[in-house]
């Protein structure tokens, strides 16, 4: 498998504080890698190192096979784009002028393609409006356009939807999915908004206290997420006996309410309960979410 990023045993120490502790991770080409972790877990430090803004204390990483200590890293980085912390833009310039700056830095022979990029991020009509007057969502979209100016194969986005309104979140999500599908661009996206991340990520890396706790693909994650049936019945009499007959794990949240873990058809459950004289009042199927998986991985809600 071809990887756009490989990180091996990477650590970063700020005086006595260990921000990253032996991080090892792999991002395959074409993946949308969700880096999940709470604030201060080490997400941004890892991203800053990958983007060359900081050096690791120990360990190594490679971008498209080029180790960060070699000279090839500079040409490998030209296949990369990114937003670290917040979009880096000249506030006094227009969206177009900001993109022109990026094109010049990339050594592009002409400014062809700027209009297309602006159209893609829906900023074509901003004219000469200075970026400092843009909304947060507009700046975030322009940041993505800047990151895409180099026609990258790998884009790093640090908390791309932080502070955005629901419409802005949907727009960013659609842009990422479109680019991943149409151009096979790999993304590394850090976020603590797990619900949103779960809608786009194909791979996950869970980070806590500077350590990668687990790396998992979307399919593996779906397999490991437990199915749940939440129910309410009319009486508590013989309820436990009835639930034991399902041979599934269960938890009662009140005398007449509870959750069953595993797969069972609702009609089969209803039949078992009927045999014990219990009537099913309310029932719904639920999947374990990425959030609950993450909480379990961290060892309970007290950790979040």
């Amino acid at each position: 498998m071809e990887y756009c990023l490989t990180v091996d045993n990477l650590s970063k120490k700020y005086r006595k504080y260990l921000a990253l502790d032996g991080v090892t991770m792999r991002i395959p080409q074409g993946a949308i890698y969700g880096l999940v972790g709470k604030n201060g877990a080490g997400k941004t430090t890892l991203i800053r190192i990958i983007c060359g803004l900081q050096s690791p204390t120990v360990g190594t990483y490679s971008i498209f096979g080029a180790p960060y200590t070699g000279k090839e890293i500079y040409s490998a980085r030209r296949r990369m784009g990114g937003i670290v912390e917040s979009p880096a833009l000249y506030g006094s310039m227009s969206a177009k002028d900001n993109l022109k700056q990026q094109f010049l830095l990339l050594g592009k022979p002409s400014f062809d393609g700027i209009d297309k990029l602006l159209e893609m991020v829906d900023l074509k009509d901003t004219g000469k409006k200075p970026v400092r007057n843009f909304s947060l969502g507009m700046r975030q979209r322009l940041g993505i356009a800047m990151a895409l100016a180099s026609d990258p194969d790998f884009v790093v986005l640090d908390e791309p939807i932080n502070g955005l309104d629901p419409q802005g979140i949907v727009e960013i999500r659609e842009i990422i999915l479109k680019l991943n599908k149409e151009r096979n661009i790999a993304f590394l996206i850090s976020s603590h908004i797990l619900d949103e991340l779960s809608k786009i990520a194909t791979h996950y890396g869970f980070i806590d206290k500077g350590k990668i706790l687990k790396e998992i693909t979307k399919d593996q994650l779906e397999d490991s997420l437990k199915k749940r049936i939440v129910f309410k019945v009319d009486t508590a009499v013989e309820l436990c006996s009835a639930l034991d007959e399902t041979h599934l794990q269960y938890k009662l949240t009140s005398p007449t309410e509870g959750e069953l873990y595993g797969e069972i058809s609702i009609s089969a459950l209803s039949d078992i309960l009927k045999c014990h004289g219990i009537t099913l009042i309310k029932v719904s199927e639920k999947d374990e979410t990425l959030e609950s998986y993450y909480i379990n991985l961290l060892g309970g809600e007290s950790n979040v």
């Binding site: 980085r77 030209r78 990369m80 880096a88 700056q101 990026q102 830095l105």
Partner: peptide, 11 residues
């Protein structure tokens, strides 16, 4: 503006 980051990220 943080635009120095753009220069480093692109190599």
């Amino acid at each position: 503006n943080g635009t120095l980051k753009n220069k480093i990220i692109i190599g």
